[in-house]
Design a protein around this nucleic acid. Structure first.
Lengths: 168, 168
DNA sequence: CCTACATAGTTCAACTTTCAAGAATGAGTC
DNA sequence: GACTCATTCTTGAAAGTTGAACTATGTAGG
């Protein structure tokens, strides 16, 4: 059932495409693992959690609504709830009620959280630089940026509209 | 302690580098989530597990030693043990003792496993194609391949030698 | 006000991943 | 053989993630 009514042979990947796809998977998993370990070791949290602190640090009053933070970090609200609970236990984030909407919560970066970022940002930037920017030519950096923007665009509004492009 | 003796101001990312880095994180997480959901929905397993079946399907006799499979899939042996246990419960993989090394185990793809792949490969390829290759120009595909190969190289021998490049 | 429905965030259970042991076998040396 | 150390794979507990169900509040229409 499902898509079995499609008689056409699927368009397999060419050899070149397969090579690129594997290189992509290979490199992205290695890099994510590398950063995860670096941050787990130095800062005591996974990469995603670190990203949450960064987002908060750049927000006005160093705080964001949960939904907003989830959206900008590309994670589910459920995952964010767990993550913030953990970061709160660490003392790096505090929750605050939203006055204008009693359902709402702000996640706010504490001074301790700022300090954790201050202490770990150099090491993290160094890791990113060493893994990526020190190895690519300026042209490649530009190409990578363009490519990643295209890919993100294709997945952004995500599932909605993906099958119905005329509704965009 | 650690790297606090370093008095030099860390080399922060330029604006352009930051944009590229964010685009990279953004696109890679969206894509991985997308494929995970596609495969979870259609094949009942996460992307990594699907990758294990693919690796096995391409190996001689459709089987690989655990360590070999872990290495080629870039995951720890521990993680692989758990994963294979789960796939075995599904009936898609079977374990076999290695005659020449009594510590060793083969993971072998079952006929059922082959069938699962056969059924899901078209959908998966379509997802990959739609997310990546249908959106990039041939030049971009080539550029992406080159870039990813460079990044992988830098992380490949991984932690060993990373801090001691003169030992390579 | 009341109903119906939408939105914000949390919680629970099932599942996956990680990390630190641990059990068994292999390999080298005396 | 006995000792030591390395390698292979597994296990168990803790941490993280997911998807669905749930609570509470907001919003629109009668």
């Amino acid at each position: 059932m499902g898509n079995m009514g499609d008689m056409t042979e699927p368009r397999w990947l060419t050899d070149e495409e397969q090579r690129v796809w594997r290189a992509y998977l290979h490199a992205t998993t290695l890099l994510e693992d590398h950063l995860d370990r670096q941050l787990q070791r130095d800062a005591g949290m996974p990469h995603v959690y670190y990203g949450l602190l960064v987002q908060l640090s750049q927000a006005p009053r160093r705080r964001l609504r949960m939904t907003e933070l989830a959206r900008s970090a590309k994670i589910t609200r459920s995952r964010l709830s767990h993550a913030i609970a953990r970061l709160e236990k660490n003392g790096w984030v505090r929750r605050e009620d939203c006055p204008s909407d009693k359902r709402g919560q702000f996640a706010q970066l504490t001074d301790e959280g700022v300090e954790v970022l201050r202490r770990n940002a150099p090491g993290h930037v160094a890791a990113v630089r060493q893994a990526m920017f020190d190895r690519l030519s300026p042209e490649q950096v530009e190409q990578l940026g363009a490519i990643m923007r295209v890919l993100a665009e294709g997945l952004e509004p995500a599932d909605a509209g993906a099958d119905l492009p005329w509704l965009r």
